[in-house]
Design a protein around this nucleic acid. Structure first.
Lengths: 348, 348
DNA sequence: GAAAGTCACGAAAACGTTTTCGTGTTAAGA
DNA sequence: TCTTAACACGAAAACGTTTTCGTGACTTTC
């Protein structure tokens, strides 16, 4: 079990100086052809590779980007990671992950852990707790130290940085428009509480679609779930509330749900009540998940292009990292990713 | 936009030496109370944090572990990552990810990228291509350089390292036993080609369960799918083959599938053929996925405890990293994670 | 044959730490 | 008053690179 070989060891073996070895390996014209050949042969034999950490220290650059997300066991986020990793690798960067688990303190700890020189920049999506507490000091402190941040999906306008977001508003609007075009007369919305920006925007899209078609939004048709609990935990509660909603408003013939599970639950309850999807009631969800594709009936859904979000975020971040000129007045971009309505069996 | 402050800057400001600052921050008794107080106050004011990269270089230890997996948009793997991250963070380590995308060359490139000093050890699951080509030189080279490796799930006995695996054999056997106990007389197996070790073991479990109940396994009841294509791509082909199988053997009243999607497809085809699950045909899958829980009917499945696998793998790796004594003859462990049969609606 | 230039290489600094080993000053002991 | 010990601090090395700047030994030029 031998350690990795270093320049110093090569130098000693070949009885030259460290600088000579370093230069020879980089084909410097300061070094004679003889020496270059000798050094390179030796280095190859011992499989020399420059130590990354030493390079990082010297160059004050790690070629690593950090990504902090609330949860990894989640199709949306894992697809974003895939996108980030793809672009990062292509451009010579590694990706280091931190999970906030939707907790403010874990988010802060993770950021501090990585901000001390381990990475060149952050890609992150805020935890629910951070969104609730509206405490953004850790972002600002990190940026003040010259560490660029790109936020995605869950963002707030108070923070000045690059952002990549989904067009939640139009995604929702298009979905509801589709339901209206499909002759739905009474469309329910199943959503979460409003503190997460995306939920709010989707609700607005729903309302505006209705209004544009001269349908008055009715508060009774909007079901707001408390999602501070884990999805799975409050599944029964969810279904019970949906059932109550459906029973109270038998005329409901369309449902727009802000996520996959809510949509699936709606279909499940509908079936239980003897309603056929899509004949009696049509359902559209919002997500990139795997459930939609494989449910029966399969679910029409608003795709978020999660992987593309990750790719764009990574490009944005690396561009910023590599831009030599940090112009005095920084310009921040917000990239909006268009959604796509994927029609499946749950709509006509 | 000021850079992070360093010991040197503090030293200059306070007109003491770097060593004094360093010692003062660590409350060395070499330093007077006065100086300690002064330095710590200044450091706190400027929010000093030691540079991780410098520490890594000095200590020849990065406190980072690398995880290389074939795919991240996958419930099993993302749960493993969650487990790894949980334990790693608790024990003061970061996690850096690499995706092989089931490709041999990407696996090698990723490993080389991380092996050059960036991490202290690897946790990995082999790509399908690596399993097929049976070329393991990169693992051995990495380990020869003193970098510990823990493999999980997809392992081969040729490589001498710590391993965490699922008890695929008994998981499958228990599942089939369950079907037999539930009065299934003709049980089909839907599996993949055999080069992935886990597939082979699950097939063996199936066969042994049958044999122990004096049922002769029939080759015609075993459907081997070519999974070199992406799941989604060959979905129709899968369903067509299952349909053919069911039609050719109408007596089939039980199905054991080696993954979630195969099981779901079996249920889908059954429904199409007018068969009721579980009345006419019972189905069991093998996975930790999300589809099983939310399908209709929900799927009885063999849970792999993916998160626990990640946790155990991380503990194993960190133990090895931190064990000072690299005893001459290294001992390697293989931890077997027991499966658990989760009964849902697809079995009686 | 001396001045100038080329060649091939080495010394040293720098990145930011920690730690070992001095060393000068003061206080205590004889 | 002299020796010794305690105290408080600094210099320097080390981790593994890259790069700038010297510097001898030759070679060329007039």
């Amino acid at each position: 079990m031998k350690r990795k070989i270093t320049l110093k060891q090569i130098a000693r073996e070949l009885d030259v100086s460290i600088s000579t070895v370093s230069k020879a390996l980089r084909n410097s014209k300061e070094i004679s052809a003889d020496t270059i050949q000798k050094v390179q042969a030796f280095a190859k034999l011992y499989n020399y590779r420059p130590n990354n950490i030493a390079l990082s220290l010297k160059n004050r650059k790690t070629n690593t980007i950090g990504i902090i997300i609330p949860e990894i066991v989640h199709h949306f986020f894992s697809k974003v990671i895939r996108g980030v990793e793809l672009v990062a690798n292509q451009r010579g960067y590694n990706v280091i992950i931190g999970l906030s688990n939707e907790s403010f303190s874990k988010e802060v700890i993770n950021m501090e852990m990585l901000a001390n020189g381990s990475i060149d920049g952050f890609i992150l999506s805020m935890s629910k707790e951070t969104l609730q507490q509206q405490d953004y000091h850790h972002y600002n402190e990190t940026m003040n130290q010259g560490m660029p941040i790109v936020m995605f999906d869950r963002v707030v306008s108070d923070i000045r940085c690059d952002k990549v977001i989904v067009d939640d508003f139009n995604g929702a609007k298009n979905a509801v428009n589709k339901l209206i075009a499909n002759k739905c007369k009474s469309i329910a919305l199943i959503t979460t509480r409003d503190y997460v920006s995306v939920g709010k925007l989707r609700t607005q899209g729903y309302i505006e679609a209705l209004q544009e078609h001269h349908i008055t939004p009715q508060a009774e048709l909007i079901l707001k779930m408390d999602d501070t609990l884990d999805y799975e935990v409050h599944l029964e509660k969810l279904e019970a509330e949906i059932e109550q909603l459906f029973k109270a408003h038998e005329k409901i013939d369309g449902v727009f749900a802000v996520n996959e599970l809510y949509a699936l639950s709606a279909m499940k309850v509908a079936r239980k009540l003897g309603l056929n999807v899509p004949e009696d009631i049509q359902v559209i969800g919002f997500t990139d998940g795997v459930l939609s594709k494989h449910s029966t009936p399969s679910l029409t859904t608003v795709s978020q292009h999660a992987q593309q979000m990750g790719e764009r975020a990574a490009d944005l971040l690396i561009d910023k990292i590599e831009s030599e000129f940090s112009t005095e007045e920084e310009q921040f971009q917000t990239i909006v990713i268009n959604t796509e309505l994927i029609e499946r069996e749950s709509t006509k």
